[in-house]
Design a protein around this nucleic acid. Sequence first.
DNA 1: CTTATGTTTAACCAAACGGTTAAACTAAAA
DNA 2: TTTTAGTTTAACCGTTTGGTTAAACATAAG
Lengths: 210, 210
Amino acid sequence: MVKPDDKEEIILKAAMEVFVDKGLYGAKMQEIADRAGINKALLHYYYRSKEKLYVHIFKFIFKKIMREVAELLKSDLPFEEFLKTFISKYIDLLSKNYRFPLFIMRELSQGGKIVSNAIKEAIPNELNEHLPAIKLMEEAMDKGEIVKMDPRQIILTVVGSSLFYFIGEPILRVLLLNEESFDREKFLEERKEAIFNIIYYGLAPRGDQQ
Amino acid sequence: MVKPDDKEEIILKAAMEVFVDKGLYGAKMQEIADRAGINKALLHYYYRSKEKLYVHIFKFIFKKIMREVAELLKSDLPFEEFLKTFISKYIDLLSKNYRFPLFIMRELSQGGKIVSNAIKEAIPNELNEHLPAIKLMEEAMDKGEIVKMDPRQIILTVVGSSLFYFIGEPILRVLLLNEESFDREKFLEERKEAIFNIIYYGLAPRGDQQ
DNA sequence: CTTATGTTTAACCAAACGGTTAAACTAAAA
DNA sequence: TTTTAGTTTAACCGTTTGGTTAAACATAAG
């Protein structure tokens, strides 16, 4: 009956920070409790075990990202406009949640047994059955707007190009972007434009091939 | 004076497998010892602490990858050929060491404090001073072979497109490549061709812009 | 053979960890 | 006021973990 603050949400936020930062094994219940400003036992009152708390947070993050990506894929625009807006919004989405991709991939790289059903739950049916983006691409190919190609190759190129900056940022800052006055936001805007230009015109029909 | 097998190498191999799989915190010294077929104390005889062993292996992997990438960047070929061979050899390299990228990025995402000097050591000077690939691109731009663009944008697109398959493989298998008879090698060969085509022709000069 | 040095092991230790317990506290309901 | 149920805590527990120790073993040098 007592609910001074919404402790549950405070715990969730603290746990998310720690888990995203350090993964399941690196995260310590004590650190989560400290960051939430509560006692360790209260953690077990709300979420019975570390694993349950972790799965809870993984589901939350994974579903959130999947839901937002699925939203980006719903589009009535012609292919050129769709591609441009998708890249832009996808990079914005990643920029806001730049730690999530690596968190998800770290878990999946370990086999993802703990969260396997979380994954199946979170993938919206539309995404599974027939990606709307794939249909758009096939139409553009039929119309001769873009060259014929396995749509999955296009998706991998778009997503990989957009995602890589955020996954590799720490090392890129040393290797490529090592200026003192590096302007992240400006660079990301340039990045959007570059990805669109390279990929869209890279898909344009050419004389020597279909 | 006794060296029945090269235990040191056996240990290194076992430790690498466990660390790459589970990260610093997920890896247990006992598991490494078991996998190497030795006692746990012997681990501390060779590598005094878990952290030292981990740093050792991180350096080894990071240097190996950096050295091989730097090798791929040394080229006298014209830009078109260079791009084609780089993509092909880079994907081959990743395919052989498909667990390394995520291992490196997991560490870096945690701040990489433990390995920060390892990183500085491992980055060859050539890579730091003036990437040979950047020079090649600037020449191709001057010759009008490709459109004028920040070379870093091209690098991010090439590397991101090539790398993404290996980082995202577990989730891609569910989302995109969920056929029973998925032929990984064949797909990767198609991937090489697609990346080259999209990027090279995406960089081709166009009527409406420089 | 003896010594010296490198190699290998079982047994042990302190600290950290995830998790439990039982009791105290709070405030709305009866 | 008493009851009831949710909330919060300090103290505790068993296990796991990284790391140590001391002794046994192997082999080349003196």
